[in-house]
Write a protein that binds this DNA or RNA. Structure first.
Lengths: 226, 226
DNA sequence: CGGCGTTTGTCATCCGCGTGTCATCTGGCT
DNA sequence: AGCCAGATGACACGCGGATGACAAACGCCG
C-alpha cells in the first residue's frame, strides 16, 4: 500500500511517516501543496493524507484540483479545527474523510483502513429519475442531457430526494437530514430550497418531477416510463 | 429487525440487550467505538444505538465515519448530558435522534419505532378493495389502474373506510375518527365528504363501492370477486 | 487583511385550494 | 301530500405553500 503524506510540519510529518512505515505502508512525503499535487498526479497511490493548511497551495485546493484531474485516490484530510463548516468544505472539495488534530495514530490507521474498505462500493452508480441524472461521485447533475449547476445545499437536497424516489418526505425529515440542527422554531428553509431546486430542474422542462403534497411534504416523482 | 448496540457499560448493555431481545429484535452488542464501527460497516442493521462516550473511538466520531462511509442506517445516540451543544453536535455528526440518560426503556423503544417510521415509511402493504388500491406509504390511490388525486381529508376518509371494509360506519364514528372534535352542533361534513369521495372514486366507474345505509351510516362494499 | 460576488437563511406578502357551512333539492316512505 | 334523510351545489374563510426580496455569512481574490 502506497501512501502519500502531505504535511508541512516537518516533525509531525516525520513522526507520521515513521508510524505508517511501521504499520507496513510505503510512504512518500511532500511538504507543500504544489509538491503534493504533482506527486499525486504522477504516482499511483492507494491513499493520500492531506493537511489543510499548507504552503503554496492549501489542502482544499489541492483536493479540488486532483478531483478535477480525475485522480480518484482516496483522500484523508487533516485539519486543526472542526466545525460543520470545515467538514462540509472538506468533503465538498472531494475529500473522502476528515480527521481533526490532534488525533490518535490508531485513529488515522483505522480511517485509512476504512477508506480502503469502502473503496469498492464507491463506484456507486449515478442516481436516475426519469431523464434526471445525479452522480454522487462526480457531483454532476443533468436533465435531458443538459448539465445543471447546483450549490452544495441544493445538491444535497436533490440527492436526498433521489435516494427516496416516489416517497413523500416531510419537512422535518428533510430539515433533519440536511440541516441537522434543533429546529423548534418554524422556518421555511425547506420551502425556499424546494423553490430554488424547482427553478433549476423543473421549470425549464415540461415534465415536472418535484411534487408538493399539501399538508404532508414533498416528493420526487419518477415517471413510470419505459 | 437487527439492532446494533454500542455501549461500553457492560451492565447497561446487557440490560438493554435483554430488553430489546425481549421486544423481539435481534441484537448485536459492541463494547467500543472501533468494534461498533466495523460491525456497522460490515453488517446491515436496521438501527444502531450508539453511546457517545466510548473507549477507542467516541460515538460522534463513529457516527461521522459511518455517514461518510455511506452507511445510512438510522442512528440513535445515547448521551449523559443534554445541552443544545451536545444535541447539535450529535445531530451534526449524522445521528438521527438523541436520547438522554437516564431514559425509560419504553422511550427507547418508541424512538426506535419512530426512526423506522421516518426512514422506511412502513412497508405496510397497500389496501385493496376490488379494483381500488390505496397505498398508505406513498399516498397513492388508484382505481382500475387510473391514478386518483385526493386531498388530505379525502385520503384519510378513504383510508378509514378501507380499513373497515364491508362494515357500516356511522357518521359519529367517522367524524370522531377524522375530525376528532366534539361536535355538538349538527354538521353535515361527513355527507359532504362522502359526496366528494364519490365524485372521484365512484362516479367515473360503473361499479359503485360506496354505499349509503339510510338511517345508519356508510359502508365501503368490497366486491366478492375472483 | 479587505473588498466583492455568491450562497444561505429569514421574512413579509401573495395566492390558490382545501375545508366546512349553508341553503336547497331529491326521492323514498308513510 | 308531507316528511325526513341524505344528496348536491355554491360560497367564504383561512391555512399552507409559493414567491420575491433582503441581510448576513461565507469563499475567493488580490
Amino acid at each position: 500500500m502506497r501512501i502519500l503524506l502531505v504535511e508541512d510540519n516537518r516533525r509531525l510529518s516525520a513522526a507520521l511517516k515513521a508510524s505508517l512505515v511501521d504499520a507496513g505502508y510505503a510512504v512518500d512525503a511532500a511538504y507543500d501543496g504544489m509538491e503534493g499535487e504533482e506527486l499525486a498526479i504522477s504516482t499511483p497511490y492507494d491513499a493520500i493524507v492531506l493537511d489543510v493548511l499548507l504552503p503554496r497551495k492549501d489542502g482544499l485546493a489541492v483536493c479540488r484540483s486532483l478531483r478535477v484531474a480525475r485522480v480518484n485516490t482516496p483522500i484523508l484530510m487533516l485539519t486543526a479545527r472542526d466545525t460543520v463548516q470545515d467538514r462540509v468544505r472538506g468533503l465538498d472539495s472531494g475529500a473522502d474523510d476528515y480527521l481533526v488534530k490532534p488525533f490518535a495514530l490508531s485513529e488515522l490507521l483505522a480511517r485509512l483502513r476504512a477508506l480502503w474498505r469502502r473503496e469498492a462500493p464507491s463506484k456507486e452508480p449515478a442516481l436516475m429519475a426519469g431523464d434526471l441524472r445525479l452522480d454522487p461521485a462526480t457531483r454532476d447533475v443533468a436533465r435531458a442531457g443538459q448539465r445543471i449547476e447546483l450549490t452544495a445545499r441544493l445538491f444535497a437536497l436533490l440527492e436526498y430526494l433521489m435516494r427516496h424516489p416516489n416517497q413523500i418526505l416531510t419537512r422535518e425529515q428533510i430539515e433533519g437530514h440536511l440541516w441537522s440542527y434543533d429546529f423548534e422554531a418554524t422556518s421555511n428553509v425547506v420551502d425556499v430550497y424546494m423553490r430554488r431546486l424547482r427553478l433549476r430542474i423543473d421549470d425549464p422542462f415540461s415534465v415536472k418531477l418535484l411534487e408538493t403534497v399539501r399538508g404532508v411534504g414533498y416528493r420526487l416523482r419518477v415517471p413510470a416510463d419505459s
